[in-house]
């Protein structure tokens, strides 16, 4: 089952072709990390999904319903958190959530109960303080509350952690992870560690198309470039180590990386045997797993 489906989506701004036939499928229940460098077209894609911008070509469906510019059909099942949410500063958080709730068709007493519940979830007090006095973190939390208010099937977050400090980021990711099973989440970011931390599905957008998409573990396996990382006292010794090793290796200053396909222990044993025979002793030996950053580099360069 897929909740979001983009087929051959194209979008151009003036001379710049931002999306060149983007295909993207988000399975129901997934936490989907939508990755791409700045300006890759992540926000544009999200605005197209939300019907905030016009499609030049292709088709988008949310929960089986086609998205059309300016139409609110699909919007009732989607919650959206922009990168920097903008509010009416003269309102209190309760007033703002009431406005949002009424627009999504929620009615009393469900709306009041839900607002109290959401403010508690995002740890915001229910008082008379106006939003213009809120900190950036509080505004981001209010953004989550409004996005989750109508119990959406799909939550779309655009660079949600980019404006937060490390503690705020960690708390936000914890909150997103806690929603697993309740809804599908699509979140865009260029912070790859955030994706690795909570996502089970990943899509990498580059040059207007999705370069790769799928389960994160499967992708790591597919792009596996596991390496043994050795550290030496000097670059001269590292250079000597590469010479005596008798297998492909790359040297970067005092470090030498030796790629391996099969057994880590057997590779390390063979490398150390060759080095010790030449009286070259490493200071440290470590295993380096394939990261999302490796995959990102491979598919975008």
């Amino acid at each position: 089952m897929t909740i979001l489906d983009l087929q051959r989506v194209t979008k151009r701004f003036g001379d710049k072709q931002v999306l060149k036939g983007l295909d993207l499928t988000v399975p129901t229940g997934a936490i989907f990390g939508f990755v791409g460098e700045n300006g890759a077209g992540k926000t544009t894609t999200m605005k197209l999904i939300l019907g905030l911008d016009t499609l030049d070509g292709g088709q988008i469906t949310v929960a089986g319903q086609p998205v059309r510019y300016g139409r609110a059909v699909a919007n009732q099942v989607v919650g959206y958190l922009p990168d920097v949410p903008a509010y009416y500063g003269y309102m209190t958080s309760t007033e703002y959530l009431t406005l949002c709730g009424r627009l999504t068709g929620m009615r009393e007493p469900d709306l009041s109960n839900r607002i109290t519940e959401m403010l508690r979830t995002v740890d915001l007090p229910q008082n008379k303080h106006r939003i213009h006095g809120f900190s950036r973190g509080m505004k981001q939390r209010l953004g989550i509350a409004q996005a989750l208010l109508n119990r959406p099937q799909l939550l779309i977050c655009d660079e949600p952690t980019s404006a937060l400090d490390p503690n705020g980021r960690s708390e936000f990711l914890k909150l997103l992870a806690s929603l697993r099973g309740e809804m599908t989440i699509l979140f865009s970011t260029h912070i790859l560690t955030d994706v690795e931390r909570i996502s089970d599905q990943v899509g990498i957008l580059h040059a207007g198309v999705l370069q790769v998409q799928g389960n994160l573990t499967a992708l790591k396996h597919r792009y596996a470039r596991s390496q043994v990382q050795l550290k030496f006292a000097s670059s001269a010794i590292a250079q000597q180590a590469v010479a005596v090793m008798g297998r492909p290796a790359t040297q970067t200053a005092t470090h030498v990386a030796v790629p391996f396909q099969d057994d880590y222990a057997a590779t390390v044993a063979a490398v150390l045997k060759a080095l010790l025979a030449a009286h070259v002793v490493p200071l440290a030996v470590d295993r380096q797993e394939t990261s999302l950053e490796d995959i990102f580099r491979e598919v975008t360069t």
Binding site: L50, G51, L52, G70, A72, N75, Q76, V78, Y80, P82, V84, P85, A86, Y87, Y88, L99, C100, L103, T104, G105, Q146, N150
Partner: peptide, 15 residues
């Protein structure tokens, strides 16, 4: 210019 309508439009507010 401030972007305050984005949230509301995505919630189903017709333009």
């Amino acid at each position: 210019s401030s972007g305050t309508l984005v949230n509301l439009i995505t919630k189903g507010l017709p333009r």
